Computed example of a mutant assay.
Amino acid sequence: MDVQTLEAYNQRARSYARDWIEQDAPDDMYRLLRQYFQPGPTADVGCGAGRDTAWLAANGFVATGFDASEGLIEEARATYPNLTFRRADLPGLDGVERGAYQNVLCETVVMHLEPASIKEAINSLVGLVCAGGTLYISWRVTEGKTIRDDAGRLYSSFDRELVVVPLLEKCDLLFEEDVTSASSRKRVERLVARKRAI
């Protein structure tokens, strides 16, 4: 994980948690999750303050949230004390069991990585999914050049093929869109893929 980005989330965890709770719900994403996710253990990678982990749990999924930021994990545990949140970092996701999840959600996280780390991150995410399971991944599209926001968070500019090529080595693409998010009002790319049975 990019060090400056992680520091920004740790230092401003409470503020970011409040912002995400006050945002409009990402109902467009939730419709996709209802359509493509199947019952079973579900990992929310980059869960932040836990909003989407809580939605998954409320909608019948056995959900665990993972995030690199201790500050955000603390906020998630305080807000949703009955849910499970653990620390884990992309790109490696060390310590997270491989092949254990029917569904993996990774909403607007990979753009916080340097482009050179994205292939490893995709391989790690695919590795969490069991055969026949589903991965949803999205990222904020930064056109033209890599930027940092006022807090220092990294938004990498990269070609979608950095995500798609490693994804398709083990998965079939079920859905793709380039759209303005109903929640953040930012441009995002979304992919839903199903891991092939071996």
Rank of each mutant, 00 (worst) to 15 (best):
D2S: 11
V3Q: 15
Q4I: 01
Q4F: 12
T5M: 04
T5F: 01
L6N: 05
L6I: 02
L6E: 02
N10W: 02
Q11A: 15
R14C: 00
R14D: 02
Y16I: 02
A17Q: 03
A17F: 01
R18Y: 02
D19E: 15
D19T: 14
W20M: 12
I21H: 06
I21Y: 06
Q23L: 14
Q23A: 13
D24K: 12
A25N: 13
P26Q: 10
P26D: 12
D28E: 15
D28P: 12
D28T: 07
M29W: 07
L33I: 15
Q35L: 14
Q35A: 11
Y36C: 00
P39E: 07
P39M: 04
P41T: 02
T42D: 11
T42A: 05
A43E: 05
R51S: 05
R51D: 11
T53K: 04
W55K: 10
F61C: 00
F61A: 01
A63F: 04
A68P: 04
S69C: 10
E70M: 04
G71E: 00
L72W: 01
L72T: 00
L72I: 00
I73M: 08
E75L: 00
A76S: 02
Y80P: 06
P81V: 07
P81I: 07
L83Y: 11
T84H: 13
F85A: 07
R86Q: 14
A88D: 09
L90V: 13
L90F: 12
G95N: 09
V96G: 08
E97F: 03
E97R: 12
E97W: 02
E97N: 08
R98L: 12
Y101R: 02
Q102H: 09
V104F: 11
L105Q: 08
C106V: 05
E107Y: 09
E107C: 13
T108C: 15
V110M: 08
V110G: 03
A116N: 10
S117L: 14
I118Y: 12
L125F: 09
V126T: 15
A131T: 06
G132S: 11
G133K: 07
G133L: 10
R140K: 15
E143I: 10
G144W: 06
G144H: 06
K145G: 03
T146Q: 04
D149G: 09
A151M: 03
G152C: 08
G152D: 04
L154D: 01
S157C: 14
S157P: 03
S157K: 02
D159C: 08
D159W: 04
E161H: 07
E161W: 01
L162G: 03
L162F: 02
L162C: 06
V163C: 09
V163H: 09
V165P: 01
V165A: 14
P166V: 11
L168S: 02
L168H: 05
C171N: 02
L173Y: 07
L174S: 05
F175R: 09
T180Q: 10
T180Y: 11
S181R: 03
A182S: 14
S183W: 10
S183D: 06
S184V: 04
R187I: 02
V188P: 05
V192S: 10
A193Y: 04
A193R: 08
R196F: 02
R196L: 09
A197N: 14
A197F: 12
I198K: 13
I198N: 13
